[in-house]
Amino acid sequence: MLNVDNLVVSLRNGPQILRGVSFGIEPGEILALVGESGSGKSMTSLALMGLLPPALAITGGTVSLGGTEITHLAPHQRVRRNCGKVAMVFQEPMTSLNPVLRIGEQIGEAVRVHDPDAVPADRAKELLDMVRIPDAAHQLSAYPHELSGGMRQRVMIAIALACRPQILIADEPTTALDVTVQRQVLGLIRDLCDRLGVGVLFITHDLGVVAQMAERVAVMYAGMLVERADVGPLFRAPLHPYTAGLMACLPDPESDDPLLATIPGAAPRAGAVPDGCPFAPRCVRAASRCRSGALPLVHGGEGHSARCHFPLTAAASA
């Protein structure tokens, strides 16, 4: 369905932020994109949306949806050309809704564009019901500041669904929410994916929620995908030392030790990414050949691959 092929995003006349990212998403499937903050997850999603900030541009690769290339099209151009649609739920529910417009108007606006035949108010109410907002008819006339963070994020999901997307991107949709609310919103996304058959790109920096949410996982580091796998194999036998490091940071349910492990060092800033493997400076397994040249693609079973000279599971090789 969605196909991202060797996507490169750069600062205008500057360093690359995304350095050749490829993945695909099928209808009804959830792909989790995992990585530390600053690794380029949000820029990936904005590039797919055609909404990169003015300072950034797609300088290589393609994005196609249902066979149509949509790489350089902004959302309104995609509407005009009647091609497939990508919709997005943003990270910050508190600032992502227009403070002076009622909820109903903000949803209705999307309905009018994507569902010209529907009655906006009716469809908006239907959408609010779909995202399980109680008393939907009444909430249509509420202003964003009258809703809680969790409710606002549901409204954001409703707006995204109003676009009738084939692909839904959720960029850390629950980072700003309380734990209980988090679980509800995650459940909602999972459920909508199953029910509506949309493909979901689920972005998170928390490997913990990945297992509950996704079928497949892509791990991003410094603007590169370092490992891709189905959830099961990834947790059972990660190939890339970075992935293993992320897992070591997860709280262990069987131990009471509150101290979490962390990967020593910090991720490189865009523009200061070293030659060779970007993770090498922080990697205990790194050797001299990690510090220059291309990285081999190693395999660890069906659909499981990583870019590493010294994968943790020796079984595989290119």
Binding site: M49, L51, A74, P75, H76, R78, V79, K85, A87, M88, F90, S96, L97, N98, Q106, E109, A110, R112, V113, H114, M156, I159, A160, A162, C163
Partner: peptide, 8 residues
């Protein structure tokens, strides 16, 4: 950005 994302 949300408004742009709607495709209006």
């Amino acid at each position: 950005r949300t408004a742009r994302a709607k495709g209006i």
